[in-house]
């Protein structure tokens, strides 16, 4: 794609810049260091521009998100700074507290939510991030993560529950977490 002149890069920007907000929301929480979210977005666009002639325009928004997540994964591996993860079991991994106080969760500051999100197992974290933070649909999320939509539904549901349980534990550490490592 490089070297095709101004028309090519303007066509690329016209097709991709409308999705900048969604990309930033992903990068903000997928980057190994949140302070490098801008860099990750920029690198995503540069990588996408290089391969734009191979993109057939099916879903540019999902295509950009897949590039962004792949870059974030490889950067995290390089930096060896992956967020602490909780092993994902197939069933029964969510141990509910006595009550998830939705009003209390609503008063948590965003740093606590970010910390809890970073503690989710990666498959669940990506689903919550894509759907609930960045606004992608189930179908788009399945395309980005290359997994069946039923798997996405299960993961996002488990991720949300675990997030709520972790946050309830944050608000009420004496009784809320029930050993959710």
């Amino acid at each position: 794609m490089r070297g095709n002149g101004g028309e090519a890069h303007r066509a690329f920007l016209d097709a991709t810049l409308p999705h900048l907000e969604a990309l930033y929301r992903i990068a903000r929480h997928a980057a190994a260091d949140p302070a490098q979210a801008d860099d990750l977005v920029q690198e995503t666009y540069l990588r996408a521009f290089t391969h734009f002639d191979q993109h057939h325009g099916d879903n540019t928004r999902a295509w950009l998100a897949a590039i962004c997540l792949n870059l974030a994964r490889s950067q995290a591996r390089s930096a060896s700074r992956r967020p602490v993860e909780v092993p994902e079991s197939e069933a029964g991994e969510v141990v509910a507290p006595d009550a998830v106080d939705e009003q209390a969760i609503a008063t948590l500051d965003r740093a606590e939510i970010e910390t809890a999100l970073a503690r989710l197992p990666e498959p669940q974290r990506w689903c919550v991030l894509l759907m609930d933070v960045a606004g992608y649909t189930v179908r788009e999320t399945a395309e980005i993560l290359q997994c069946p939509r039923g798997t996405v539904l299960a993961r996002v549901h488990r991720g949300r529950r675990k997030l709520a349980v972790l946050l309830a534990g944050t608000r009420n550490p004496a009784g809320g977490d029930h050993g959710q490592a």
Binding site: R25, R110, I113, A164
Partner: peptide, 26 residues
């Protein structure tokens, strides 16, 4: 209830991109 609480909490992380990011990317 947990699903709804988790979704609402995650939705609070919807940041707006920095105003100059589009210029920087372009």
């Amino acid at each position: 209830r947990e699903d709804r609480a988790g979704r609402a909490a995650a939705a609070r992380l919807r940041d707006a991109a920095p105003y100059d990011l589009a210029d920087r990317v372009s």
